[in-house]
Write a protein that binds this DNA or RNA. Sequence first.
DNA 1: ATCATCAATGTAATAACATCACATCGACCT
DNA 2: AGGTCGATGTGATGTTATTACATTGATGAT
Lengths: 132, 132
Amino acid sequence: MVHAQELTKNQSLVLDVLSHTEGPLSAYSLLDQLRDKGFRAPLQVYRALDKLMEFGLVHRLESINSFVACTHSHDHKHGVIAFGICDTCGRVDEFCDAVVEERLKGWSKDHAFRLSKTTIEMRGTCANCLAA
Amino acid sequence: MVHAQELTKNQSLVLDVLSHTEGPLSAYSLLDQLRDKGFRAPLQVYRALDKLMEFGLVHRLESINSFVACTHSHDHKHGVIAFGICDTCGRVDEFCDAVVEERLKGWSKDHAFRLSKTTIEMRGTCANCLAA
DNA sequence: ATCATCAATGTAATAACATCACATCGACCT
DNA sequence: AGGTCGATGTGATGTTATTACATTGATGAT
Ligand SMILES: [Zn+2]
Ligand SMILES: [Zn+2]
Ligand SMILES: [Zn+2]
Ligand SMILES: [Zn+2]
């Protein structure tokens, strides 16, 4: 497993902003928030994000072109992850479902499809926003 | 249900290109292919795509910013759709899985999350490309 | 017939997201 | 010292999507 000490300066800075933010951020939002730390170009953010995703510390939300810090403890490896994304407040809930994973892997097996990455994103309105 | 006759000129042109193409196309690829039909601007493509998606005739693949014609017969309404996308040849397989749908709806119910749209995309390598 | 309305369209400009190309730096090893 | 490799800095460029505003054409009401 990867520990915080092994992260480079830029990776730490990006993860720090993501971890202290409620909800997802775009790469350019991250860039803006890191300008006073010396960030000048999008590539600095994208490179850090690539590594953080490789380490499993950050996830990309494909349907909103944004990134979130992983909310799982990292003592274990990620399986297939699903996200519930509130379109009103931006809240993101991350969860795993073994049955879903099994069904999708089953389809892959049946179709001789070598699966490399699975994206599951549910857009909608969270309980808090519904109550308000 | 929507029939072909109800589509406008631009919608028909976009759907026609998508239907006669193996695999997904980006909005700008569509634009390029439709320039000789009078298309000049991205918005013409995006507007047509929005309507076609509303009608359920076209799907957006979030993880590759592209669009495919629906491969289902349209006598029935779409449930949750999953896609298998080959990163080598671009082939896209569309399918529904009632168990997956039930699990994701179950999570939504448990968390009082009002679900509006679900994205499931599996990236990998298809059987043909594995054989080659 | 004339006018209001509304969906679809045309067009230019701009915003938002992502990558390429190339130079530099620093740690590590020989 | 010299070589290698991963990380970084920087500018330019490429790709995807939306905003703003003008125009057209069909429909229905006055
Ligand atoms: Zn996670
Ligand atoms: Zn919310
Ligand atoms: Zn479909
Ligand atoms: Zn393939």
